[in-house]
Design a protein around this nucleic acid. Structure first.
Lengths: 146, 146
DNA sequence: ATCATATAGTTGTTTATGCAACTATACAAA
DNA sequence: TTTGTATAGTTGCATAAACAACTATATGAT
């Protein structure tokens, strides 16, 4: 019986992810107020493309922890918004490489500023030591289940 | 500049809630394998009704951290599945009180067992001290943003 | 009693997720 | 080469979330 003193009332918030839901809503609100017209899901894809442009959809699946249909449709919508382009891979004709447009590149700094600000709002009053431990726990949970 | 040593690479997981996504997926999978035919969102509503039956939709909004349209449709689907009934309130005719059916009452213990098992899978190798701190941090984040 | 406002719930629209089924291409073994 | 299998991506369907606009009822001020 692992962690058997973990009480039910506490269980609920862990499972339902109220904290990350709250962060996501606030980030979306802050994007909107800053005039940034993307969803946080689209932002999470752009985030990985800013780190490395020209990734395949499969790579984006792994990076964003989403399945293939989700990425297909996020890329569809990002393409409609002129933020990315699909380019067929020359090595492997099954594969699309996704490239940022100029418009998307211009968004990077602005959105990262908003994201950092949002995180500061979220973590106000939390010590760095606490954050480190919370981060470790979330990583362990992810590793246990992924 | 609060928490200014909080690095970008770490930011991403916090915002995207990969850990709670992983827990939610695993719980859904465990429900399915146990023959429990509800979504985790429906379960989160039932969870609060098991604690107190006959709550209004508005109360369920606050309890589950969802907006009114989300609860309207979750209750719609729970009603279709014969798990709850809407009953018009006698005191306030604007308000619906939501009551569990026998079928839903029979689900409580089985789903709570699966949820506890899922949480044990998620938290394997995490100490109770770490869990306590993570829980505090998530609560503070929620309180900062809600 | 009347009127303004607040509250409870519903509906429509867009975006996203999860799952299964599908197409097309690559690759490896015979 | 052929054949079987794995991989990359798409499509269809059901469920859910976010937001705005809406209806109906309640409440408080005059």
């Amino acid at each position: 019986m692992i962690n058997n003193q973990f009480k039910k009332g506490e269980l609920y918030s862990f499972i339902t992810g109220k904290a990350s839901t709250a962060i996501a809503r606030r980030l979306q609100k802050n994007f909107k107020e800053t005039g940034i017209e993307i969803t946080i899901e689209q932002w999470s894809v752009l985030y990985h493309l800013w780190k490395e442009d020209g990734q395949s959809q499969q790579q984006l699946c792994e990076a964003t922890f989403r399945d293939k249909p989700s990425i297909t449709r996020l890329v569809d919508n990002l393409e409609k918004s002129k933020l990315v382009k699909r380019v067929a891979s020359k090595n492997d004709r099954r594969s699309n490489l996704i490239f940022l447009t100029k418009e998307a590149k211009a968004l990077e700094q602005k959105t990262m500023d908003v994201a950092n600000r949002t995180l500061n709002e979220a973590l106000e009053g939390v010590t760095n030591g606490q954050i480190e431990i919370a981060k470790e726990v979330l990583q362990m949970v992810y590793d246990n289940l992924k």
